[in-house]
Amino acid sequence: MTRADGERAPSIQTTTAILWRSIITTADPDQLRRLLAECSLGSRQSFEALYRTTSGILLAVALRCLGQKDLAEEVVQEAFVRIWHNATDYDTSLSQPLTWMLSITRNLAVDQLRKRREVPVNEFLIQALEDQSPQAAEQLSAARQAMALKRCIETLDDMQKTAITNAYFHGLSCTELAVQMSAPLGSVKSWIRRGMERLRRCLES
Rank of each mutant, 00 (worst) to 15 (best):
residue 2 T to S: 08
residue 4 A to W: 02
residue 5 D to S: 06
residue 7 E to S: 08
residue 9 A to V: 02
residue 11 S to W: 10
residue 11 S to L: 12
residue 14 T to M: 13
residue 15 T to E: 05
residue 15 T to N: 06
residue 17 A to R: 09
residue 20 W to E: 07
residue 20 W to T: 09
residue 21 R to I: 13
residue 22 S to F: 01
residue 25 T to Q: 03
residue 27 A to N: 02
residue 27 A to H: 00
residue 36 L to R: 01
residue 38 E to W: 04
residue 39 C to T: 12
residue 40 S to H: 03
residue 40 S to L: 07
residue 45 Q to W: 06
residue 47 F to Y: 07
residue 48 E to S: 12
residue 48 E to D: 09
residue 48 E to N: 11
residue 49 A to V: 03
residue 49 A to N: 05
residue 50 L to C: 06
residue 52 R to Y: 04
residue 52 R to N: 07
residue 54 T to D: 04
residue 55 S to V: 12
residue 58 L to Q: 05
residue 60 A to L: 04
residue 62 A to H: 00
residue 62 A to N: 06
residue 63 L to N: 08
residue 66 L to N: 08
residue 66 L to T: 07
residue 67 G to Y: 01
residue 67 G to I: 07
residue 67 G to D: 05
residue 67 G to C: 01
residue 69 K to Q: 09
residue 69 K to P: 02
residue 71 L to W: 08
residue 71 L to A: 06
residue 74 E to F: 02
residue 76 V to F: 04
residue 77 Q to W: 03
residue 79 A to Q: 03
residue 80 F to E: 02
residue 81 V to T: 13
residue 81 V to P: 01
residue 84 W to I: 11
residue 84 W to T: 14
residue 85 H to Q: 15
residue 85 H to M: 08
residue 86 N to W: 06
residue 86 N to Q: 15
residue 87 A to F: 00
residue 91 D to V: 10
residue 93 S to E: 10
residue 93 S to K: 08
residue 94 L to H: 15
residue 94 L to F: 12
residue 96 Q to Y: 00
residue 97 P to R: 06
residue 98 L to W: 00
residue 99 T to M: 09
residue 101 M to R: 00
residue 101 M to D: 00
residue 104 I to Q: 00
residue 105 T to A: 09
residue 110 V to R: 05
residue 114 R to F: 05
residue 115 K to G: 04
residue 117 R to P: 06
residue 123 E to M: 10
residue 124 F to I: 14
residue 125 L to D: 05
residue 127 Q to D: 09
residue 127 Q to Y: 10
residue 127 Q to S: 14
residue 129 L to W: 04
residue 130 E to T: 13
residue 131 D to V: 07
residue 132 Q to N: 10
residue 134 P to D: 02
residue 134 P to Q: 05
residue 136 A to D: 09
residue 136 A to I: 14
residue 137 A to C: 03
residue 140 L to Y: 05
residue 140 L to D: 02
residue 141 S to Q: 13
residue 142 A to Y: 02
residue 142 A to T: 08
residue 143 A to W: 03
residue 144 R to N: 10
residue 148 A to T: 13
residue 149 L to R: 02
residue 151 R to T: 14
residue 152 C to A: 15
residue 156 L to W: 06
residue 158 D to M: 13
residue 158 D to I: 11
residue 161 K to I: 05
residue 162 T to S: 08
residue 162 T to Y: 00
residue 166 N to T: 12
residue 166 N to C: 10
residue 167 A to G: 10
residue 168 Y to T: 12
residue 169 F to W: 04
residue 169 F to G: 04
residue 170 H to R: 15
residue 170 H to K: 11
residue 172 L to M: 15
residue 174 C to G: 14
residue 175 T to R: 13
residue 175 T to D: 13
residue 178 A to F: 03
residue 178 A to R: 03
residue 180 Q to K: 12
residue 182 S to V: 10
residue 185 L to P: 09
residue 187 S to L: 11
residue 190 S to K: 15
residue 190 S to E: 15
residue 193 R to E: 08
residue 193 R to C: 00
residue 197 E to L: 11
residue 200 R to I: 06
residue 201 R to V: 07
residue 201 R to P: 01
